[in-house]
Simulated scan of single mutants.
Amino acid sequence: MVYIETPRLILRDWKEEDFVPFAEMNGNPSVMEFFLHPLSGEESRNLFDTVRNEFLQYGYGGYAIEQKSDGAFVGFTGFHNFMFDVDFAPCIEILWRLRQEYWGRGYATEAAKSCLAYAKENLPFSMVRAFTSLTNKRSQRVMQKIGMEFEKNFMHPAVPDGHLLKEHVLYKIQL
């Protein structure tokens, strides 16, 4: 099913053939620079299945992004319900991850903006948050471009103390 179309992108359900480029993306050290480590094939499979299953559980999740011009798998964006030990959880997170060859084209912003517009009209929540490592300036720029406002800094409970990625920024937007 296609959920959202933008001038250059299609946000759709996942296909099994998305797995190989998805796993390659998650194994790329540059793409995963602001995560604790690149994902193994097994970790990517688990994430792939989790993202697909969220649609069954919630009726929304992370959408596969396809480039209209050639049908290529670009990455994913969409929503995730998360709960971990922070004072703003549980909540809905908007997220994105793109294959490196698609960086710098405005695709993350285009896809995320369209997700927020879709959520406002079609999904059962009105507040969305996003977070990333303090050092991830690219994702912070996307958050700002899609209209999110800085909420606060926090220490991510899943990142070891003393790690460069421990401190995160939290952004929010009311739909």
Rank of each mutant, 00 (worst) to 15 (best):
V159G: 03
V86E: 15
N46V: 08
K68F: 08
Y63I: 09
E151Q: 13
Y58E: 03
K113Q: 14
R8A: 08
W96Q: 04
G147D: 09
S44E: 04
K166F: 10
L95K: 01
R8Q: 11
S114G: 03
T6A: 10
S30P: 01
R12M: 06
L123E: 04
T135E: 14
G71K: 06
K15D: 12
L39G: 07
D85L: 06
Q67I: 09
L95Q: 04
V2M: 04
I146G: 05
F154L: 03
C91G: 14
M155Y: 11
S30Q: 14
I65K: 01
E110Y: 02
Q67F: 12
S30D: 15
Y3K: 08
W103D: 09
K15T: 11
V169I: 13
G41R: 13
I65R: 03
Y58I: 05
F131E: 09
N53L: 05
H156L: 07
L165R: 03
F154T: 00
V2Q: 12
T77W: 05
L175D: 06
Y171M: 09
H168E: 08
V31P: 02
E167D: 13
F22L: 05
E121D: 15
G147T: 00
P160F: 10
F125M: 06
H163V: 09
S44Y: 01
F73S: 04
F19G: 01
P157Y: 00
S40P: 06
Q174Y: 08
G59S: 10
